[in-house]
């Protein structure tokens, strides 16, 4: 494998890690506030469809992005209503949201575009186009660092940079602001937060809303950045890989970045090479597909460090009267 191939694989790692990272951070806000969210997949899917649909109709990818975020927020609202207001089972609500998105996107796509559950291909302003960072062209002739800058760091769509910037932003918000402290507290001990006179319901809804916005960006990136248009089931389990990455990262933002890059790398490898020949034996492509899930189970089993979820996760908060 020569240098250029490595750069190319890493480049697609960055692109494939972006939706995972956004969804993973989305889940991080929600779960840190004590709301389990296995509906990341559905929210991404809904956002992917609506962003592609609106971008196709208006020709503006930015309107598409807004529509995607709005769609994801609606589903977040349903999740909040079910799991915060009506104290329902958060896991069941997440399952319902996944199916709702899977069904509705195809139904509406068929009704609007009549192309068998897909949107028309996006062209021109309907997509997020790569951004050339300054001097990428001139620096590309530099040995080693040149290609790294011009191929790997430069030339991604704006949402990729947004996703990577979201990591320090999340860290700062969670660990350096009052809101972040309260958000983390509400996921560990909501009663204490309540006693301090801060609204548990309000905080949790805020967390679920942030989760919706980030999932919306993730979905919009899938349909308008990574690919050009929506196809049925296009999230293809990414929401669950993001969930796996979240556990892998033990619910922390910087670890989330490395976990998503790792899983993105696995996807990039699986995409580029079918079966990997290691001389003595070949690693079939299915192993690469399954590896994120296997690694997550191993982590969950506590053989490599212990992943402890936020203590009040999954439990609806009932105020004592």
């Amino acid at each position: 494998m020569d240098f250029l191939t490595i750069i190319q694989v890493l480049d697609s790692t960055v692109r494939l890690a972006t939706p995972l990272l956004l969804a993973c951070l989305a889940g991080l806000y929600s779960e840190r506030a004590g709301i389990f969210d296995i509906g990341l997949e559905g929210k991404m899917l809904a956002a992917a469809f609506f962003s592609a649909a609106i971008a196709a109709m208006t020709g503006s990818v930015w309107l598409g992005l807004l529509a995607g975020i709005a769609a994801s927020l609606v589903l977040s609202g349903v999740h909040g209503l079910a799991s915060i207001t009506f104290r329902g089972n958060q896991l069941i609500s997440g399952v319902a949201i996944n199916f709702l998105a899977a069904g509705m996107t195809v139904l509406i796509a068929q009704s609007w575009f009549k192309q068998g559950g897909r949107t028309p291909s996006l062209i021109g302003g309907g997509r997020f186009n790569p951004i050339e960072l300054p001097f990428a062209e001139t620096l590309s002739t530099f040995p080693i660092l040149g290609p790294i800058y011009s191929e790997l760091i430069s030339g991604h769509s704006i949402l990729v940079y947004v996703a990577f910037a979201a990591v320090p932003a999340t860290w700062w918000l969670l660990y350096r602001t009052r809101f972040g402290l309260r958000l983390r507290a509400v996921g560990e001990n909501p009663a204490a937060v309540d006693t301090a006179g801060v609204s548990v319901v309000g905080l949790r809804f805020a967390a679920v809303a942030i989760c919706g916005v980030l999932c919306g960006i993730a979905g919009a990136y899938l349909a308008t950045g990574l690919q050009a248009g929506f196809v049925k089931e296009m999230t293809a389990g990414r929401g669950f890989i993001a969930l796996a990455a979240l556990i892998f990262a033990k619910w922390r933002p910087w670890y989330a970045l490395s976990a998503c890059l790792l899983f993105g790398f696995l996807q990039a490898i699986a995409l580029r090479y079918q079966n990997i020949d290691l001389g003595a034996f070949t690693v079939p492509v299915q192993v690469m597909d399954a590896l994120p899930y296997i690694l997550t189970v191993v982590i969950l089993a506590g053989f490599v460090g212990k992943a402890v979820p936020p203590r009040a996760g999954g439990e609806p908060y009932v105020k004592e009267r």
Partner: peptide
């Protein structure tokens, strides 16, 4: 008709939502 099969997925989602998550509602 032109209604795709996915209608069933939507109905299934709504049933799960109402009988499972929104039970208290």
């Amino acid at each position: 008709t032109t209604i795709p099969r996915e209608l069933i997925v939507v109905i299934q989602a709504l049933v799960i939502l109402f009988t499972g998550a929104l039970d208290n509602m």
